[in-house]
Every structure is written in C-alpha cells, then in structure tokens.
Amino acid sequence: MSTATNGQSTEKQFTLSVLTENKSGLLNRITGIFSRRKINIDAINVSVSEIEGVSRYTIMIRTERNKAEKIVQQILKQVEALDARLYEPDEVHYQEIALYKIPLNAFVNENKVEKLVRQNGARILAMEEDYILLEKTGHKSETRALFEQLKPFGVLEFIHSGSVVVSKGNKVPEEIL
C-alpha cells in the first residue's frame, strides 16, 4: 500500500462544481471545508441551478490533486450535498464576466477606445453623464488583457466575476438526482 498523502505534490488549478439543496447555512458548511484545511478559494459563484430547489456552486482553487480529491469527498459527506465534481481547466468550458468603468472623455479620443471595444468583443452596457460602462465576457486572461489596454485611458473601476463552468461531458444534472 502507499499512503494516501504522497504522490504528486504539484499545485494546479481546479474547478469544483457542486450541487446542493438550496438551504441556508449550507454555503458556510461548504466553505468551512476549505478554510479548515487552509485552502484559499480563488473564486466562488453560487446560484440557483436549472433544477428547482438546487444550488450550484462553482469554486476555483489552487492545490494538489489529492487534496482536491479529499475536499470533494468531504463535500459529498455533507447531508445536503447532491453532487461534487472536480475538473482541471481543460475539462470544462468556463467563462467570466468583467465590467470596466471608463471616463466619458476617453471616448472623444480618436475612436481608440471604440476600436478596442470592437476588437475585444466587448460591448457598451451603459452610458452615463461622465462615464461609460463596458462589459466583456471571456477567460480571465482575455478580460485582463482588455483591462491592460484600457488602462492608458484611465479605468475608474474594473471588476470581474468568478468563473462559471459547464463540464465538457454530456451528463445532465437531473441524472445525478
């Protein structure tokens, strides 16, 4: 036999996709599993899923595979957890959304910003008196790249969400229940 803790010790990015009953307090129970092991959550997204009464969590962490696997087991151990799966980046489709608040006067600047918006597949979400709100979806590297390009024009605020993911397999959540 070998111990369950040796083996690969390289840290990688993992995405956990978790389905639970939609009950108050459960988020605490789930996040406690990470904090107890001193694993930092890089991004977390919780929302109701397509199934009535079921929440879906998408949690991104960096850790070693065997630690991530044990976390999945601990999540499944919770009475109200329905499913938990572990994915490496290439096993999922994932997307983030980013918002950029740009001062209005940046747009009077020879259409440069407008060009960036078009080139990057971003769109204008809102136009206010003194700023414009841009939206872009994409991978973190892409939303980040646009931020870098917009920087010279003065970005008032930049925010991006955690990822939402769907697995590349064709299992539907109903089968899990």
């Binding site: 036999m1 070998s2 111990t3 369950a4 803790t5 696997e69 044990k70 087991q73 499944l76 151990k77």
Partner: peptide, 23 residues
C-alpha cells in the same frame, strides 16, 4: 505504515477511503 501490505478497507463513510491510507 504497513507499506508492505495490501489493504482492504471496509467502511461506511466514503470520505474515509484513501484519506490516510490508500485502499
């Protein structure tokens, strides 16, 4: 710990499997 042995682990809690000792 028992590195020479094969391990059969009978346990009702799946999270205990491979937690410390690989089965």
């Amino acid at each position: 710990y028992a590195t020479q042995a094969k391990v059969i682990h009978i346990e009702i809690d799946p999270s205990e499997i491979n937690k410390n000792v690989k089965a």
